[in-house]
Design a protein around this nucleic acid. Structure first.
Lengths: 150, 150
DNA sequence: AATAAAAGTTTAACATAACAAACTTTTGGG
DNA sequence: CCCAAAAGTTTGTTATGTTAAACTTTTATT
């Protein structure tokens, strides 16, 4: 028996969008890119597609595409063949991730876990600390400094 | 100018696989399903596609598809129209997530953050605590119980 | 037993994010 | 200046995970 045909759906006006599952309105992956770019700029003064690809262990086309999107969304500005800079919007996301990373590293250290050895844990967790929870984590780090675990 | 044609790539023998970015060899999403199923079984004695869909705020087809995959991968067994049970392999994953959830809830509580209000944080973080880090988190909970933050 | 409701599945479409191959642009060394 | 290497982009494919619509199967009610 022939299947009933479905009506053709309206053509959706598709705009560049990142499905925003996070605090920042960006995906974990996008947050990782911004964090990485900020780190590279801090270290080298600039960041390029190739730099980011090396750092995140991705290939250049993958990075190229994400960079274009982040630029379209206003998180960074590109100057062809001479890297990119974060916009204030991009800086804000990068800073928020970097602070979470730093706080988590400190907490891990105070827990007796070498942050270098738990880099993957920290990289995973840092995307899931809400703004509301962050002060609690800062306090935890202070508390552990005052009342050490060992 | 006509584009040069690419050689047809070998047909990859595709098997049911979940790209394993995590400790368990499963994705976060798959871990969420197993955690949820285990919780439902604990509460109700069994879990169904509809139960899981309600709980995780997904629609039945989404759940149906993932359940089929988890069954194919040996994490659970289905009895048509009467729910499913976790296999030992599935239990193991569920237990590991549940323990992380419990430890994190306790730590949040001891940090002065109501776990109910930070459910999303905990649900996100629980997938990123490695086996190697878990004992550290357990110790942290004990330590905070002994040396309270407020 | 009939049938309506509930439960589950199939199909098609989409978004994200990755890779590989091929192509283009820029830059730097000779 | 030329041209090769480096940098970047385009195109095509894949995997994951989701929705929506339509369909099928089971269960339960009368």
């Amino acid at each position: 028996m022939p299947r009933k045909s479905r009506p053709a759906p309206e053509a959706p006006a598709k705009r560049a969008k990142l499905s925003s599952h996070h605090r920042s309105g960006l995906t974990e992956s996008a947050e990782d890119y911004l964090e990485c770019i900020s780190n590279l700029i801090g270290r080298n003064g600039y960041a390029s597609v190739s730099d980011v690809a090396d750092e995140l262990d991705l290939i250049r086309p993958s990075v190229s595409i994400m960079i274009k999107r982040l630029a379209d969304l206003g998180y960074l500005r590109r100057e062809p063949y001479r890297g990119f800079m974060l916009t204030p919007k991009g800086e804000e996301v990068a800073n928020s991730i970097q602070e979470r990373h730093a706080v988590l590293s400190e907490i891990f250290r105070l827990m007796g876990l070498n942050p270098d050895q738990f880099y993957a844990d920290i990289e995973g967790i840092e995307h899931h600390i809400s703004d509301a929870a962050l002060p609690g984590f800062r306090k935890l780090a202070k508390h552990l400094a005052k009342f050490p675990m060992k």
